[in-house]
């Protein structure tokens, strides 16, 4: 009898736990979807070119927010993270990811010398510019950026190339959760069909 009562309580507890877990999961999904839906999109010109080996992407310039410009003026580094993804378009299923390139371009102001260091945060290549406009131009534009080996793409198949970006103020630190928590702005989206 006692064991039965305990089992009954266990069952009830598990039922409640299951119910609440489901409810919380549903809430998280709803909020995540809402956040994704509320993510901004910005239409920018994008041009996809390719040669015999490489597919290139040119996009921008995208609008840099006044807050980011103010941050640069006040000495705070600004990083613009480009996320270029290529997916194979499928009609009756979600698109299949072919490749994804993340580019982090950074501008680090030097208030003392009144100059800025612009750098690619991934490979560390940098140079110094003396004006914010140069830094903004560097951040907000990708010119003929190699995104994919052409051999990965099948001619005649429709691919979707989507470019999104996110602006971060302060020192850029790439962490394992950065990618999952990043909510970016879609800059452009274009279909690619290789001949």
């Amino acid at each position: 009898m006692h064991i039965q009562a305990k089992l009954g309580r266990m069952s009830s507890f598990e039922h409640i736990l299951s119910k609440w877990t489901t409810a919380i999961f549903a809430l998280v999904v709803i909020f995540f979807q809402a956040g994704m839906a509320m993510a901004e999109s910005e239409s920018s010109p994008m041009k996809i070119t390719y040669d015999d080996q490489v597919v290139y992407c040119s996009v921008g310039p995208v609008g840099i927010s006044d807050e980011a410009i103010l941050a640069l003026n006040q000495g705070t580094p600004v990083t613009l993270i480009w996320d270029i993804s290529v997916e194979e378009v499928r009609n009756y299923w979600t698109n299949k990811s072919v490749g994804e390139v993340v580019v982090a371009r950074q501008a680090i102001p030097d208030l003392i010398s009144k100059s800025l260091i612009i750098a690619d945060a991934k490979n560390g290549i940098s140079r110094r510019v003396s004006s914010i406009d140069d830094a903004i131009a560097f951040l907000s534009e990708l010119r003929r950026f190699p995104i994919l080996d052409r051999s990965l793409l099948t001619p005649g198949v429709s691919y979707s190339v989507e470019v999104s970006f996110a602006i971060r103020e302060g020192q850029f630190k790439e962490t394992w959760w950065s990618e999952t928590t990043r909510i970016g702005t879609t800059a452009a989206e274009e279909e690619l069909i290789l001949p």
């Binding site: 941050a71 006040q74 705070t76």
Partner: peptide
């Protein structure tokens, strides 16, 4: 000292923003 001032200024402005 100059870099310290710069860092403080940067931090201060960042906080202010």
């Amino acid at each position: 000292n100059a870099r310290a001032v710069e860092a403080d200024y940067r931090t201060y402005r960042q906080l202010e923003r």
